[in-house]
């Protein structure tokens, strides 16, 4: 298996295949990224932050990877994070405890796998989907899932670690790491490469003082 392309988004920068693509100035960095990518997808504004990060990450990846060439059933999606939908969960609780009514438009985003649904809708991907929760970015978990996909005949997997957490004081911790993997290569392990990419991209996309 082999990483064909990878990208990382944080509130400070977007990294594509090892190079810093944009740096963000705006507090609303997701909107800024949407404009920088010249995306025209009005549904974007209705989404929660997890889905927005996933949508933007795929747009970024598309610049260098042939994501449009897959048949509709071919691409398997393997996504994970640490905080599930905690960020939207907190907003939904606020809608009925403080604002007055439970908000249906927030409730539908109180599941982490909605982001894979949004990706499937935008790109018409009907393939297999899994969403997993891990206490931290877990390269072994991805490697296991990739190996299973390979054994079952999949050729390519789009993997992602997309996480958003809100602290009690309102501080957000957000990151989105996507990587496209070809399964027909000989190399049977990928975790070291993923660990190195994740660390490097995290460093590249940290706020520069």
């Amino acid at each position: 298996m082999k990483v064909l392309a990878s990208c990382f988004l944080s509130p400070f920068a977007a990294v594509l295949n090892g190079t810093v693509k944009f740096q963000f100035q705006d507090d609303n960095w997701l909107k800024e990224c949407y404009h920088k990518l010249m995306l025209d997808y009005p549904k974007f504004y209705k989404m929660d932050d997890l889905s927005k990060m996933a949508i933007l990450s795929v747009e970024l990846l598309k610049e260098n990877a042939y994501l449009n060439n897959f048949n509709k059933d071919e691409l398997e999606l393997i996504f994970a994070n640490s905080n599930a939908s905690q960020h939207t969960d907190v907003k939904f609780i606020d809608s009925y405890t403080n604002i007055g009514n439970p908000s249906p438009s927030l409730f539908v985003y109180t599941l982490p796998n909605i982001l894979t649904g949004e990706l499937a809708i935008k790109h018409k991907w009907y393939g297999e989907n899994t969403f997993l929760i891990a206490s931290k970015f877990d390269t072994q978990l991805f490697e296991n899932k990739l190996k299973h996909a390979q054994m079952k005949g999949a050729k390519h997997c789009l993997c992602g670690w997309v996480d958003s957490k809100v602290e009690k004081n309102g501080t957000l911790t957000q990151e989105s790491f996507l990587f496209l993997v070809a399964l027909n290569e000989e190399n049977s392990t990928i975790s070291e490469e993923l660990e190195a990419l994740f660390k490097k991209y995290k460093y590249l996309s940290t706020e520069k003082v």
């Binding site: 539908v108 909605i114 649904g117 949004e118 809708i121 018409k124 009907y126 393939g127 297999e128 989907n129």
Partner: peptide, 11 residues
Amino acid sequence: GASSNDANHIS
């Protein structure tokens, strides 16, 4: 076993 997405609507 298998899974598939509708690629249609989130809810």
